[in-house]
Design a protein around this nucleic acid. Structure first.
Lengths: 335, 335
DNA sequence: CCTCAGGCTGGAAACGTTTTCAGTTATACT
DNA sequence: AGTATAACTGAAAACGTTTCCAGCCTGAGG
């Protein structure tokens, strides 16, 4: 004898009654209600989510699939999902794509097998086709995750901020800037940003070239590579393609003895507490990922609750924050 | 007609057979096996985890309860749990205590309701009693989460590293150090570390006093408070109680124009990429939270799989990493 | 040719809920 | 007082699996 049946016996009623009073449904005499509540309390009864889910086809779980948990950037997003899910009584199942489209697919399948009530993603998945299949199979997918080219694309979100940053650089007299990304830039993010940056630079008459960061775990090699790149390209400013790349980049700069922002200005994509506290405080292009997660999750849960169709969500634009890591170049090139 | 039944019809067999071949059980003719596999594939069949869990009493979910998701410290832990869980076919349910014992309790209940196969925590919960109840109710709790006073306590893990840091400070000629924590130090972590630090300081003959960091979001006020505290106490070194506190602390130091490490040395609890790349690189006391998460999760899953009882796990000791944020005091106090 | 064994297969129960439907009792009218 | 209505309660079905058990069929050995 287990679960609800045990409570029923303890309270001297039927399981139907127990279910009703615990479910807050009407039609239960005060006497019975008291007895049931007491019994449930005494037995520490917690209805099995599996059984309930089976019956109701509602699991009260929202799934999150992140491309790569090792990237701290996703944490604010995760937290945003957490707070609204938790507030509305949902649990959160986190799956990690581990940078691999294959892993991502298998995780998607797992999420689907768990019949999560809704799925939210911080960015479009590597394999949109697969996701679309699951969606037609009934998976409720949050806003935008499928429509990369639309409002969600980085170009829409980070376009103007990127433009502002490049204008800033140009206005101060910079002429040649480097775009720092991993040597093997497999992330779609880096790629999209490269497009953004090169377009913006062209617009304001800045020369831009890619600078590969070697093995980020080896400060010495990073320093060497960086130094050469700066000299060879006579670059006076750097744009860091992703936030996690900033620490190794800064480490390399430090090891190479490059003065920041004197010898080289820096703008990095993504913000964080430490970026604001760095010496000098870093100029960044910031997205409010927490806010986005909150809105998106709220919206998908509302849709789940059957609220009317809402107009498509457009995430807030990123902003360019000027702090102290950008300065005029030491030797302005002649016009 | 749904789920397995649909597949069964499509393949022209009974649901029992479908279940068997999909479950990899023996006794299935090649012909049937092929048909079933094909049908399952065609229909994108994914068994409902709820139904399966109901029947097998295994949910293939491991729960993680973190005290506060906003603290980036937990991310490596989370990731550790993720990689081993994922590798062994488990999904991960993340619950956030949001710094509140009450929330934590309700989240624990939710986790229990979901019948997670195992629960792992980065640190003992605020209300061990409640957890213990759930444990007797059948929740499998990972190593150590319940026995705060034993091997898991911070004093066991961070004791010697703390000692090393204090000795280092003393050896360089420091006499008076400040312990920086939030004004309202509600976290048990800060408290435990204060005990640790004051004991270690006493042992090596260092004076130590608490320094409250005002509102971390206001760099000006932090700077002011810090400056006063340093002067009034004639402190020449600071220990930062928690990692998330370091950025505001550094920001304040910067705003106050305090030279690091010239005018003031600094040791912070917890490590991260940026701490190593800071200028100067920070001396830290580091725990390998990722490694701990991996071991702990592996162990609890092994236990779940019915492997023999293992000897209790003792997490690896923290280490004191000396980088460049500690230097001799500018004006060594007279002996 | 008959029997027996053993490999395959299907029927049906069970897992713990929620919910419908019908039944029972009490209450309020006429 | 009789009846209709409402309030409350319980029996039972259903959700989608897994698994036990029994039955069937095939092949082999006598």
């Amino acid at each position: 004898m287990t679960g609800i049946r045990l409570v029923a016996r303890e309270a001297g009623v039927s399981i139907a009654t127990v279910s009703r009073v615990l479910g807050g449904h009407p039609h239960a005499s005060d006497d019975v209600r008291r007895r049931v509540l007491a019994a449930a309390e005494r037995l520490h009864y917690q209805p099995s989510a599996a059984a309930r889910g089976l019956r109701t086809t509602r699991t009260m779980i929202v799934g999150v699939l992140v491309p790569n948990l090792a990237n701290p950037t996703v944490v604010p997003f995760l937290r945003g999902v957490q707070v609204v899910a938790q507030a509305q009584g949902y649990a959160v199942l986190v799956a990690d794509g581990q940078r691999s489209a294959a892993v991502e697919r298998s995780q998607l399948d797992r999420l689907y097998a768990q019949r999560v009530d809704a799925l939210v993603l911080p960015s479009p998945p590597g394999d949109p086709e697969h996701l679309r299949e699951l969606q037609t199979a009934g998976l409720l997918v949050a806003d935008g995750a499928l429509d990369a080219p639309a409002a969600w694309s980085l170009s829409a979100i980070e376009g103007t901020a990127t433009g502002a940053a490049c204008e800033h650089l140009a206005a101060l007299g910079h002429h040649r800037v480097g775009f720092v990304a991993r040597a093997t830039a497999r992330g779609s993010t880096s790629g999209a940003r490269w497009t953004l940056v090169s377009a913006a630079c062209r617009r304001v008459g800045l020369h831009v070239e890619r600078v590969a960061l070697g093995d980020p775990s080896n400060a010495g090699s990073v320093a060497l590579g960086l130094e050469q790149a700066l000299r060879r390209g006579s670059l006076t400013a750097l744009v860091c393609a992703t936030h996690p790349l900033a620490p190794p980049l800064l480490g390399g700069l430090g090891a190479a003895g490059v003065d920041l922002p004197g010898a080289c200005s820096l703008v990095v994509y993504g913000d964080s507490d430490w970026a604001a506290a760095y010496r000098p405080p870093l100029n960044v292009i910031r997205r409010d990922l927490f806010g986005v997660a909150v809105s998106v999750t709220e919206r998908v849960l509302a849709r789940l609750a059957g609220s009317a169709e809402l107009d498509p969500f457009s995430p807030p634009a990123a902003e360019y924050l000027v702090r102290r890591s950008v300065a005029p170049p030491r030797n302005p090139a002649p016009v």
